[in-house]
Amino acid sequence: MEITIKINGRFMSVEVSAEVADYLEQAKRNNRKLYRERQRYWDGRECDEYIIATEGRLPYCATPEELVCQRETLDEILAVLALCTDTQRERFLLYALYDFNCAEIGEMCGCSKQAVQLSIEAVRKKFFKIFR
């Protein structure tokens, strides 16, 4: 299998085994996940130890009202997912939770990239319809 890598600012094509290609693809996926996690928690809440050391405060703890609201939101999300077909739900969760792109999901499910995009969009429309 041939892949393209960047070495010293130059792109080179290299022949590698399928195992190496799978490993590199998994590494790319993990890097995307890490990047999204960093974006999601950029406000600094991930540094609880730093906050405790510098400000002498305990880490954030949700109030009972916030916990109830979180539970209600989770119940609403699960209710919307229950309205979807099994195929739509599977494709949406692979996309949203496991960070697979549409082409990868299409390969796993044995369908086209466009079919995956349509399934994901159908689930999104249901969410927007319920939550707006």
Rank of each mutant, 00 (worst) to 15 (best):
F131M: 12
I5Q: 08
G110E: 04
E65R: 09
D48K: 12
A122F: 01
A21E: 15
S17C: 11
V80M: 00
C84R: 00
N8S: 12
S112P: 01
G9W: 06
E76F: 04
C69M: 14
N101L: 00
S119V: 00
G56L: 08
L58G: 08
N31S: 07
D99L: 05
T54K: 14
V80D: 02
K6H: 04
F128G: 12
G110L: 05
L78K: 12
C102S: 12
R57Y: 10
Y98L: 07
A62Y: 08
V123E: 03
R132W: 05
R10Q: 14
G110Y: 01
G56C: 06
R124L: 08
F127N: 02
E37K: 07
N31I: 06
V68F: 07
Y50M: 11
L93N: 00
K129W: 07
F100E: 01
I77M: 11
D43T: 11
E107W: 01
D75Q: 14
M1Q: 03
F127Q: 02
Y98C: 04
I130R: 14
C69Q: 15
R71S: 13
K126T: 06
L118T: 08
M1I: 05
V123T: 09
E107T: 08
I77F: 08
L74P: 00
Y50T: 11
N101R: 07
N31E: 11
G110S: 03
C61Q: 14
Q88P: 01
L97S: 04
F11Q: 15
L58Y: 11
L83G: 05
K33L: 13
E72R: 11
Q26F: 02
R91C: 01
E49K: 09
Q88L: 07
Q114W: 02
N101E: 10
C69S: 14
V16T: 07
C109E: 08
A82L: 06
E104Y: 01
E49T: 09
E66S: 13
V20Q: 09
I52N: 10
D48Y: 04
E65F: 06
T54S: 08
V116K: 02
C109L: 15
E66K: 13
T87H: 06
A122M: 04
I5A: 09
S17G: 15
D75H: 06
N8L: 10
Y95H: 13
F100Q: 00
Y95S: 11
D99E: 10
K129A: 14
G44E: 07
E72K: 13
V16K: 03
T73N: 06
W42H: 10
A79N: 09
E2F: 07
L78N: 09
E55Y: 08
L93E: 04
S13K: 15
C69F: 11
F100G: 00
Q70K: 14
T63G: 05
F128V: 08
A82M: 05
A115V: 05
D75G: 01
T54L: 13
C102Y: 09
R132N: 14
P64F: 02
L81G: 01
F131I: 08
D43A: 11
E90R: 14
Y41E: 07
N30Q: 10
T54H: 15
N31C: 02
R36Q: 11
L94F: 05
G44L: 03
L94D: 03
R29F: 04
F100V: 00
I52Q: 14
Y23M: 15
